[in-house]
Computed example of a mutant assay.
Amino acid sequence: MKNNIKKNNSILDFDKCIFFDNFFYGYCIGFCISLFLTIISFLIVFLNLFSNVLTIIVLSCLLIIQVFAQIKYFLHLNIMNKNYWHMFALVFVLIIISILFVGTIWIMYHLKHNMFVVYIYE
């Protein structure tokens, strides 16, 4: 009985495997970018490198970069894709995330006023 699978065309031959080259490499690049941006974000906050306003601006920029890296490397979405339903779903998710983000900031801003405690000294 002949073996119809050649060793050089096997999916386990990592040197010549197209699946390994295309997908695994992209996932590794995306993971490294996400890990690097997350570490930078934690260090900025932990070491208190900037003022409060500048920290928020820098973290927001790093957040936007990380979101685009996640979209490109993990979700494999791009503008040139012919399947527009994926882009509509992405826009919907971005709208929901924006509502949650703005709502959270609004609640935290008003939390100080609503939780104000009056101390009565005797």
Rank of each mutant, 00 (worst) to 15 (best):
M1L: 08
M1H: 08
M1W: 03
K2Y: 09
K2D: 12
K2P: 14
I5D: 05
K6F: 06
N8D: 12
N9A: 03
N9G: 06
L12F: 15
L12H: 04
F14D: 01
D15F: 13
K16A: 00
K16W: 01
K16L: 03
C17R: 03
I18F: 03
I18N: 01
I18C: 00
D21S: 11
D21R: 12
N22P: 00
F24L: 09
Y25G: 00
Y25M: 06
G26R: 15
G26Y: 10
G26N: 15
C28Y: 05
C28V: 11
C28Q: 07
G30L: 02
C32P: 00
I33V: 13
L35G: 00
F36V: 10
L37K: 01
T38N: 05
T38P: 00
I40L: 14
I40Y: 03
F46N: 14
F46R: 14
L47W: 06
L47Q: 09
N48C: 04
N48S: 10
L49N: 02
S51G: 15
S51L: 02
N52E: 15
V53P: 01
V53I: 15
L54D: 12
L54N: 13
I56M: 13
V58K: 03
V58C: 06
V58D: 02
V58R: 03
V58N: 01
L59E: 10
S60D: 09
C61L: 15
L63N: 11
I64F: 13
I64S: 14
V67M: 11
F68E: 12
A69S: 15
A69V: 04
Q70S: 12
I71V: 14
K72C: 01
Y73T: 03
F74Y: 09
H76C: 14
H76I: 14
N78Y: 09
M80Y: 11
M80K: 14
N81A: 08
N81M: 09
N81D: 15
K82D: 13
K82G: 07
K82Q: 09
N83L: 10
W85C: 01
W85V: 02
W85H: 08
H86R: 12
H86D: 12
F88P: 01
L90K: 01
V91T: 10
V91Y: 11
L94R: 02
I95C: 05
I95F: 11
S98H: 06
I99S: 04
L100D: 08
V102A: 10
G103D: 05
T104H: 04
W106D: 05
I107F: 08
M108W: 00
M108F: 07
Y109C: 06
Y109H: 11
L111S: 11
L111W: 08
L111K: 08
K112C: 00
H113V: 07
H113N: 08
H113W: 01
F116E: 15
V117T: 06
V118R: 13
Y119Q: 11
I120K: 14
Y121Q: 13
E122S: 10
